[in-house]
Design a binder for these strands. Sequence first.
DNA 1: CGCGCGTTTGACATGACTCAAATGCTGTGG
DNA 2: CCACAGCATTTGAGTCATGTCAAACGCGCG
Lengths: 249, 249
Amino acid sequence: MAQMNNVTPLFKDMAKLEHDHRVACQECSLYRLCLPLGLHNKDLAQLDKIIKRSQSHKRGEALFTTEHAFKSLYVVRSGSFKTTISATNGREQVTGFYFPGEFIGLDALYQESYQSNAQALETSSVCELPFDSLQELGKDMPQLQVQLLSRLSKELSGDKSLMLLLGKKTADEKLATFLLSFSKRFSDRGFSATEFHLTMSRGDIANHLGLAVETVSRVFSRFQEEGLITILGKGIVLRDIAKIKGLCG
Amino acid sequence: MAQMNNVTPLFKDMAKLEHDHRVACQECSLYRLCLPLGLHNKDLAQLDKIIKRSQSHKRGEALFTTEHAFKSLYVVRSGSFKTTISATNGREQVTGFYFPGEFIGLDALYQESYQSNAQALETSSVCELPFDSLQELGKDMPQLQVQLLSRLSKELSGDKSLMLLLGKKTADEKLATFLLSFSKRFSDRGFSATEFHLTMSRGDIANHLGLAVETVSRVFSRFQEEGLITILGKGIVLRDIAKIKGLCG
DNA sequence: CGCGCGTTTGACATGACTCAAATGCTGTGG
DNA sequence: CCACAGCATTTGAGTCATGTCAAACGCGCG
């Protein structure tokens, strides 16, 4: 059980993407994954104008909470975030993890108030899309609306899969599914599909998957014994993707 | 433990709403709950033109499955539906129940293919909205797009709450939450908030909440012993809403 | 009227949780 | 730069809520 966490060349991560606040959509490396996909140059320039590229958020810092007034949607630019909702009695559920190019705050549109809290998992930055401007722009840009709908729909689809996971899967299946989902999202962004950092705590993972921390820890350890993965602190190496796939249920 | 199911004046239900296929949006009793909300008369008339009002679907009949080509969104007109997704190994998760005025198929927009199966729980009818026409219409009708976004967002928001339920709640809390959610949706539609029919089987309820059938049955029985509810087959009477609220967690 | 499925109830099994404690890692301040 | 404090993670032991298996019951459909 080695130690290590940040300065390992093995694990590249998304915190390094583009902290440069001036990069316009046209030159952004996330273009293929992001909202502007499919917009014409002229439209893209317009969209670019309404985007606020905020300063970066430190680990643990809130992007917004249910207390804040709804004003904007956000797209992750670098780093990663988690969103949570809370029950009346204080229990919390981690509803999602968000990587570069992914939207945060879509569940706020209805009722125009944030329904969840969003928090940075590491030093991260976002593109802020003031919703009023976005609506205004959408009136003359049907393609933008289509993109927005598509984003919402994608998240919806993912949430349904998570329901299946939460409702029907065993601890092993949950964690196998979780690992593969991350693998795919990393590789979609040009990172390794087999070696990556988990920027969230075991507690966050457990919470998100409807498990206890101890269970996550135990299953990870067992996966390692069985040669499926190697654990290096927050770093994970997938050693046998095929077998992991077989465990997903 | 009495018996009864359909012909009881006590329980009014949504199967009786408007089976009349000619009722236009303007005169539809669901207006306040449905898509057209906020559209001007002229726009409404246009929307009305693209809507196909299909024949009714019998209990158990599929509205669509993941095998069907994506073509349309649907709004429940009368009756009720359930949606399901399946894991590779055959396990199924009931992802939602849908009542008059609610959208089905929103998770299909992304990828333009149905991601779930929709099935009638009783004799039911829908308004079919061909997606192409809807997109076409949306180009000149920003308000329609806003409505659509809002619908997606609402479903997203509900799904996040369900994650909290599936991940963090006990069997008692799950069922209390379930009952109150139905109570609200019934009363929103002008039906009694305290007396209603559950059109789905115990199995569907259990599946949706991530429980075993036997657990649902047991908890319902206990709730009845404790004077919280009265069970009459598929009929439910909420006897102490305050106390049920207290159980939601 | 009778068959079959959906529902209820009981007895038992177990996966995952809780509690507890050791160990390791991280970030801070001296 | 190092040492310490505090939190995160791991590991173990025991419990419990909920699932599984089994059987009786009754309603609903043909």
